[in-house]
Design a protein around this nucleic acid. Structure first.
Lengths: 391, 391
DNA sequence: GAAAGTTTGTAAATTCATTAAACAAACTTA
DNA sequence: TAAGTTTGTTTAATGAATTTACAAACTTTC
C-alpha cells in the first residue's frame, strides 16, 4: 500500500513487460509483443524505440513474413553491460563476470584458508577487481556485484552469522559498495542457488521450486511464483535445522536431531570415518563407490534415505513443484537417488506429490554464482525500468 | 507479467489505497489521506467522492481544527453490505453473518453427525440461507460466502481431500455459487484461521505470522507480508505431516513419525485413554488437570513438549514473527505453555528467534469463521476497487 | 504480372487520471 | 479586526495509452 499509481508507474510497468519479452522470447517483432501483451502496436513501438535508444534492445533485421510486410526482429542487447557474481565458500571462492543475459565471460576459482575476515575480504576484493578490469567496453560497464554467502544475511546486506566461516556481523555490502562504487546484493548461497537454477538451470520453466544445497550443512532457497521467498525477517531456509528426530543427538544450533546431522556431506564423511576407522574425503568415497565397494555404497544409500526424510518434510510443508538438489554430493546421485525416490513414493502425501519432480542440479557448483550475478542484473533493471512492488 | 498498465489500473490502485486508509485509519480527512499517501488533495477528493457515491465511505461531520478550516471526517461504511462466513467442522459448523468490517451480526452453531456429503451440504445450505434471510437491508446486500473446511482445497474451490470428514472431490464452490448466486470462497480452515487472526485477532499488527490449528490433526496457515501463502499448487500447510521422528509410528498419510501423531488433540486423548484405561474427552481432562491431577497435568506437559518440537521446526523453516496456536487445546494453555516455551528457548536458532512471539489464540474457535467471512469481503473489494496482482 | 489481401510499424487525434497552481471557505491566533 | 493556516474544490497542463487511419512492404491469387 505504499506505492501510489501515476503515469510514470504505468510506463515503467509496460516498459518492463516489453523488455521482459525481448529478453525471453527473442527474436521477436514489435507486432508480436503487442499481440502477446495486449498493448497497442503504437505503445509497443514507442517503448521499444526507447529501449533501443538506451541500448538495451537492438534490431537485427527482417524476419520471415507470414503474408504481409516482414517484421523487424528485436534482440536483447546482452552486452550493454556486465555483472559480477561470487560464490563465497568456506575454503574457496568462485567468481564470474557475466553479460546481462547471464552468459559467463570470465571465471576465477580461488582457494583460501579462511584466515581472518579481513584477509578473506581482501582476497574477495582483489578477485572482484581483477574481473572488473577484464570486462569488455560497454555502454553501462559493470553494473553491479552479486554475492552468495554461507550464512544468514539481513536486508541491509550484513552477514549476520556464518558458522562455517566463523564470521559474525560483517557489513559486507556497504564495504563492497564503498570499495567499488557499484550496487552490491548479498544473499544466502542457497537463495542464490535457487535463483541460479530458476534462471539458468533445470528450473527455468517452473514457477515454484526449492533448491536444497547440501554441503557442510543443509540450506534451502525457496522460489514461489517465480520469486525468491526470504521469510519474515529476511533469513529463512535454515531447513537443515528441521529436526527429524526430536530426541536425537544435539546440534550446534541448540536443537536435537537436526536434518543436517543425518544428511549433509559432513554427516556422510563423519559416518564414513567412523566405519572405516580413518578420515576420508568425498572424492575418495565416490571413487570407492564407483569401484563397487559395497560398504561405501551402503553409506550413500543410507544418506539417500535421510535426504528423502527431509525432502518429504519439505514437500509436506512447502508443497513445491520441483525440488533441485545441489552441492558436491550430486556426484553420488547414482546411489542416492533410488532410496530417496523410494522413500518419497512411500511417505509423501498423495495430493502434493502429484506433480512433483526431484532432480540433482545440472549446473553443478555454478548455481550459486550464476544466481548471484543474476541478482546484480535484476537490481540493475529494477533501477532503470523497474516494476514497482505493491502490497 | 500479465497485467499491463493503463489509466484504469492507476485509478484502481489509488482508489484501493484511499479506501484502505478509510477502512483502517478512520475517522480521517481527505487532507490527511493526501498527506499520508502522497497523492494530491485533488486526486484524493475525487476518489473519495466516488467512494461516497458508491456508499463505501461516508462523511460524519467536521473534526477538530488544527489552526484552519475544520476537516470533514470520513468513515468506512461497514453496513453497505454483509458477508457470510462458515467454519465447517467434523461434527459441527459455526456460521456467521458479518458486516463489511467483520463485525458479527448473527451467529449459528449447528451439530451434525457427518452422515453423508449430501446431508451435510444440505444442512450447510439451510444454515447459510437462514443467515442470508436475517441480513439487514443494505446497498449491496449479502456480497459473498466464505468457507473454511478441514481439508485440502484447490484453486477452483474443490474440496479435494478431507480425511476427517471422509470427503473426497466435492465441488463445494460451484455448488454453493449455483445455489445462492453469490461469490463463494473456500479454503482450508487453518488458512482461514490465519486470516482471521491477522485481521481481527492478536496478529493485527504483524505482517508475518503462522496460525497453527490443533485439532484432530494439525494444520497451519501461513501469512507472509500480510498475504496468505498457499504453496505452489494451492494446498500447503500440511504441517502436521512433518515428521519429527523419521523411524516413528506409521501415520495414515504414509509417512512415519508425523508431528500430529504426537501433538494433536487426538494424540492427547489416545495417550490419556491408554494411561487411564478408558476413553476420555478433552473436557474431562481439562477438569482433572484443573483439580490438580498430577498424571493428567503431566500429559499436558508432555503435549506441550511435542508442540514445541514442531514449533521449532516451523520457526527454522519459515521464520515467522508470530506464532498463534489455535483450536480447542487452547484450554490447556496453562500447562502447555511452560514446557513449550522452555523448549523453544533451548532449541531454536538464535537469529530467527529474536523477535518471535508465541501465543494461544484470543479469538478462540472463531478465528476460522471470521477469516472465512473476511475472504468474502476481500473478494468483494477485489472485484470493485481491485488492486491488480502482478507477477 | 497486376490486383487483392495481409502484416508491420508509424502518425495524428482523443481520452483520461494525475499533478500543479490558484483560490474560496472556514477556522485560529495575535 | 487583521493575518495566517488548513481544507477541499476548480482549472489548466501533462503525458501515456488508446483509437483510428495510413503508408510501406510483403504474399497470394487469378
Amino acid at each position: 500500500m505504499k506505492q501510489t499509481g501515476d503515469l510514470n508507474l504505468v510506463k515503467k510497468i509496460n516498459k518492463t513487460i516489453v523488455l521482459h519479452h525481448i529478453r525471453t522470447d527473442s527474436p521477436i517483432s514489435r507486432a508480436k509483443i503487442a499481440e502477446i501483451t495486449g498493448l497497442t502496436k503504437a505503445t509497443v513501438s514507442s517503448l521499444v524505440n526507447e529501449l533501443i535508444e538506451s541500448s538495451l534492445a537492438q534490431e537485427i533485421g527482417a524476419g520471415e513474413s507470414s503474408g504481409g510486410r516482414k517484421p523487424m526482429m528485436l534482440l536483447f542487447n546482452g552486452t550493454a553491460g556486465y555483472a559480477i557474481g561470487v560464490d563465497l565458500g568456506v575454503h574457496d571462492m568462485l567468481a564470474v563476470l557475466t553479460d546481462l543475459t547471464g552468459k559467463v565471460i570470465r571465471e576465477k576459482r580461488i582457494q583460501h584458508y579462511n584466515e581472518s575476515v579481513e584477509q578473506v575480504t581482501n582476497l574477495l576484493k582483489e578477485t572482484i577487481r581483477a574481473l572488473i578490469e577484464t570486462a569488455p567496453q560497454s555502454v553501462y560497464g559493470v553494473i553491479g556485484i552479486g554475492l552468495g554467502v554461507p550464512g544468514i544475511v539481513d536486508e541491509e546486506g550484513n552477514l549476520l552469522f556464518a558458522p562455517n566461516l566463523g564470521w559474525e556481523n560483517v557489513s559486507l555490502q556497504s564495504e563492497l559498495e564503498a570499495e567499488f562504487g557499484l550496487p552490491v546484493v548479498i544473499d544466502n548461497e542457497a537463495n542464490a542457488g535457487a535463483v541460479g537454477e530458476k534462471q539458468f538451470g533445470a528450473g527455468k520453466d517452473t514457477a515454484n521450486l526449492i533448491y536444497v544445497s547440501i554441503g557442510m550443512g543443509i540450506g534451502a532457497g525457496i522460489i514461489i511464483k517465480n520469486e525468491l521467498y526470504r521469510g519474515a525477517t529476511g533469513f529463512s531456509g535454515e531447513i537443515g535445522h528441521i529436526s527429524i528426530q526430536h530426541d536425537g543427538p544435539k546440534c550446534r544450533c541448540g536443537s536435537l536431531g537436526c536434518w543436517e546431522l543425518y544428511a549433509s556431506e559432513h554427516a556422510l564423511l563423519e559416518q564414513a570415518g567412523r566405519e572405516l576407522g580413518h578420515e576420508v574425503d568425498l572424492e575418495s568415497l565416490l571413487t570407492k563407490a564407483e569401484s563397487g565397494d559395497a560398504g561405501v555404497i551402503q553409506l550413500f544409500e543410507r544418506l539417500g534415505y535421510y535426504l528423502g526424510v527431509g525432502v518429504v518434510n519439505i514437500i509436506n510443508g512447502y508443497n513445491p513443484e520441483f525440488i533441485i538438489l545441489g552441492g558436491r554430493l550430486a556426484g553420488g546421485e547414482k546411489w542416492l537417488m533410488k532410496p530417496l525416490l523410494e522413500l518419497l513414493k512411500k511417505r509423501s502425501l498423495p495430493h502434493p506429490r502429484k506433480q512433483l519432480k526431484v532432480e540433482f542440479s545440472e549446473l553443478g557448483d555454478r548455481s550459486t554464482v550464476l544466481g548471484a550475478a543474476s541478482f546484480a542484473v535484476t537490481k540493475f533493471f529494477a533501477s532503470t525500468t523497474v516494476s514497482v512492488d505493491r502490497s
